[in-house]
């Protein structure tokens, strides 16, 4: 009888493995794509951004509001164009900067992959605008970027996806209207990763987050845009392109380890008590 009563001791190794795995998961590399700033750019980060509340980067959804259509940007050929000329139907606006070393490329790559799969006619039933929020970028950079993506998209009409650059004031009028807040860090930027879908009259009908899009998501938002309906946001997990603060990160993991340790110690103590104290003597036995 005594040996079977000790059976729960078998649970100790499982708990140890659990602890180990929890530790591994906690110590795993940071899951968000950390913005690896290439070595060439490092010198501009003499004072890396301290992770403080001062940095105002984010996205405040302004569903139902309209963006100003009288803004003039330069297109990839250097011609001035107004948004009113470009937005003649449901339009996806992707705020990016073309020399971005990281997620802007993923975002535009995500669009390049998804757009040809839509069951809508590009150029007629929808348009795409990549708008650079880096006021120093010129149409030549935009042209290079466009060439890249067009090459991967087969016979997608070039007129349906335009790559715009503009001056600081124009850029801010657009991003403010979209509720999109970014911040310059040397040559690079801290910025949210999202696109907005607007209707013909400039009304914002949806935001889509992240760098990869399901054709279904895009299509549904474009269809809604053509009907002037405003939809709920898709994929609410807002990814950021950011420089993170390793000091704070370590603090967060300590919290996890400490609480995990306390829980495991308590539970093991309880198990030890159960096993060691054995069966209770019944009063009626005595």
């Amino acid at each position: 009888m005594r040996c079977v009563a000790r059976l729960p001791l078998l649970l100790f190794p499982p708990i140890a493995v659990f602890l180990l795995l929890a530790g591994l998961a906690a110590g795993a590399p940071p899951p968000l794509p950390p913005p690896e700033i290439p070595a060439a750019h490092q010198h501009e980060h003499q004072h890396p951004p301290s992770a403080s509340a001062e940095i105002d980067v984010g996205l405040t959804e302004k569903l139902g509001e309209t963006i100003p259509l009288d803004l003039t940007f330069l297109d990839e050929s250097g011609q001035p164009v107004t948004l009113r000329d470009l937005i003649d139907g449901p339009t996806i606006i992707a705020p990016v900067y073309f020399h971005c070393p990281d997620v802007c490329n993923f975002l535009q790559g995500g669009l390049a992959q998804t757009l040809p799969q839509l069951k809508l006619r590009p150029g007629e039933e929808f348009r795409v605008l990549s708008v650079s929020f880096d006021e120093t970028e010129k149409p030549a950079t935009a042209r290079g970027s466009k060439k890249n993506y067009m090459a991967s998209m087969g016979d997608f009409p070039p007129g349906a996806w335009r790559f715009l650059t503009g001056d600081l004031n124009t850029i801010h009028r657009l991003t403010d209207a979209l509720g999109y807040r970014f911040q310059r860090q040397g040559r690079d930027f801290l910025h949210p990763v999202a696109v907005a879908v607007v209707a013909r009259d400039g009304k914002i009908v949806r935001y889509l987050y992240g760098t990869r899009f399901l054709p279904m998501d895009l299509q549904l938002s474009l269809v809604e845009a053509s009907q002037g309906k405003i939809g709920a946001s898709i994929k609410r997990v807002l990814a950021f392109c950011f420089s993170y603060d390793p000091v704070n990160r370590r603090y967060v993991f300590n919290l996890l380890r400490v609480t995990g340790g306390v829980v495991l110690l308590t539970v093991s103590g309880f198990l030890a008590w159960l096993v060691l104290s054995g069966r209770k003597k019944s009063k009626r036995d005595g």
């Binding site: 940071p30 940095i55 993170y244 603060d245 704070n248 967060v252 919290l255």
Partner: peptide, 16 residues
């Protein structure tokens, strides 16, 4: 700011 990457947090930690 535990889950806010702009302040050193980690949204994926919540999922874990």
């Amino acid at each position: 700011g535990l889950f806010d990457p702009a302040r050193g947090g980690d949204p994926l930690m919540f999922q874990h």
